[in-house]
Nucleic acid binder design. Structure first.
Lengths: 215, 215
DNA sequence: CGCTTATACGGAACGATGTTCCGTTTATCA
DNA sequence: TGATAAACGGAACATCGTTCCGTATAAGCG
């Protein structure tokens, strides 16, 4: 894709070596496009017409293809944007709530993200080379975010200290997978149980006190 | 979809209550279409043009839409056809090989099925109500097939008797999932290890002899 | 502030594909 | 063999992805 880098001041630059910043209207249209694509994908699926995305963003179709030569580039941009939004919520929640409460809320936020973006993730396997960097980006954003929540909760004495973000993220994602039979999985409740299992509780130390990282 | 039932004599009937069998040319075109769609999907993906499928089957596009009003109906039909082919291979392998060998070979066959049909399965989550019966069909065909292999191997004294088909099928499918990092998973080797773990072996009874169904 | 230029925009135009429709063909059965 | 209902084929239409180029405008400069 043409645009990968966000400068520290928030301005966008092309990724092709030339360091000149994008023109102001280009930056505006770009962020409008990603937001519009996110909404349209959510309501009409990833195969939604390009014209509809362009129209909702108030731009012409040509503008889409200039910024995102392939459809997969636009999908990837939306995915990254949503990853950012979810990861950024971790620090916001930490500022607004107690550490344990913040962890609970962010976990549910993460569940919503996984469930909502399953459609994108599915087309992601079929997609070309535009998606190969996404799993790494996913981890690079979510692992530090979750780590900060775990650290805060552990420092407050609410949580055991040996929880590994990578394992937790994968475990929750697995819990959100659709089951092979027809029944929907109560993902939010299962995840709440999982997080509860990480807490210190005097009455259950004998059982829950074991290192979950064993074996 | 219009055609769901296969009579015991192999003839096809409409699923809409009317019991009159399909005309001979309709049956022929129908099976040609499913085979053609399978091949085209395999080479060009599930978004392959309908015209190409029709042409390779030697029929007009109208014929596709008469039998499969929606694209998802055709995908579902191909999926069921492939499930049948894989499940039927179980009895064929049992007739041609020793029980243990038959189990090994069928497991690898199943791995190939899972890997090859990931593309279909992905579009399956996004698809509409045409796909909702497929997971149940998947289980109804594969669980008895694997059970017969496990029974035969257990009767021959080659295998522990407490292996559950449902668990095994899910475990193998999980092993075939793409990893979150980029490296490909050596699925066939892992599955061979898994099946090996089910065997009786005098030298490792202390470890592998535990009930895997515990906990 | 006005001029120049590179950058970005919009939307018509083109080709490819999904889907429908109806005149024609063909299997079935009396 | 002839009547009839079922099925076929592919042209026709609608929609969508993608390209292209004349126009508009932001950025830099005197």
């Amino acid at each position: 894709m043409l645009l990968d880098d966000i400068e520290t001041d928030g301005s966008l630059t092309p990724a092709d070596g030339t360091s000149r910043p994008l023109r102001a209207d280009a930056q505006r249209n770009l962020s409008r496009l990603v937001k519009s694509a996110r909404d349209v994908f959510a309501t009409a699926g990833v195969d939604a017409p390009m014209r509809e995305i362009a129209e909702k963003a108030g731009v012409g179709v040509g503008t889409i293809y200039r910024h995102f030569p392939q459809r997969s580039d636009l999908i990837a941009a939306v995915f990254r944007h949503e990853v950012d939004a979810c990861a950024d919520d971790a620090v916001a929640l930490l500022q607004q709530h107690e550490p344990g409460e913040a962890l609970d809320r962010w976990m549910q936020r993460y569940v919503d993200f996984i469930v909502a973006k399953r459609g994108l993730a599915a087309s992601l396997y079929a997609g070309g080379p535009a998606f190969e960097a996404l799993p790494a980006y996913f981890n690079s954003r979510f692992e530090p975010a979750l780590q900060s929540l775990l650290d805060a909760a552990a420092a407050a004495g609410e949580l055991r200290a040996d929880a590994r973000p990578h394992d937790l993220l994968r475990a929750v994602a697995s819990l959100c997978m659709p089951s092979s039979n027809g029944d929907p999985i109560p993902a939010r409740r299962l995840v709440a149980l999982l997080v509860d299992g990480l807490r210190y509780r005097a009455s259950a130390v004998g059982l829950s006190g074991q290192q979950y990282t064993e074996s």
